[in-house]
């Protein structure tokens, strides 16, 4: 099973570089509009970066625990007390569009298709 996972990982790491179509798909997922020039540049530069990552294939990691944090802390608790951190006006002042004292956003459900 473990050997199989490694094989899958190796497969992914060797099927780079990244295509223009993949860049378009990721940009869509990441909610960033790219110009055709940007798509091309990102495909090239990200391919080079991902190619560099192949160096990690040299390292056997079966049985190695992943490190997600380095402090060794766990379950840090505090009292659940309400405190006033900021006032409403200051927060409202940061908002890009306000109507009648509320944050204004476009309709979430819309009949207009995204471009």
């Amino acid at each position: 099973m473990r050997g199989c996972t490694t094989a899958v990982i190796l497969l992914y790491l060797t099927r780079m570089p990244i295509s223009l179509e993949e860049i378009k798909k990721i940009a869509l997922l990441a909610r960033i509009k790219l110009t055709p020039d940007e798509e091309k540049r990102h495909a090239e530069t990200i391919s080079a970066v991902l190619d560099y990552m192949k160096i990690l294939n040299e390292v056997p990691t079966d049985g190695v625990e992943p490190t997600s944090q380095v402090t060794g802390l766990s379950n840090v608790y505090r009292e659940d007390e309400a405190v006033i951190s900021t006032n409403k006006k200051e927060l409202m002042d940061c908002m890009p569009d306000v109507y009648a004292g509320e944050l204004k956003v476009p309709a979430v459900f819309s009949e207009v298709e995204s471009s």
Binding site: T5, V8, I9, Y12, L13, I18, E22, I23, I26, A27, L29, A30, I32, L34, E38, H42, T45, I46, V49, L50, M53, L56, V59, T61, V64, E65, P66, T67, S68
Partner: peptide, 30 residues
């Protein structure tokens, strides 16, 4: 910033998470 978001979105997306993020976290341990 766009490039990093794109690389990150790719590395965390379904099917690539183990190959990139988790692999990197394991080498981080080493």
């Amino acid at each position: 910033v766009k490039r990093r978001i794109l690389i990150g979105t790719y590395a965390l997306s379904a099917g690539y998470y183990d190959a990139y993020y988790k692999k990197a976290q394991k080498v981080r341990t080493l």
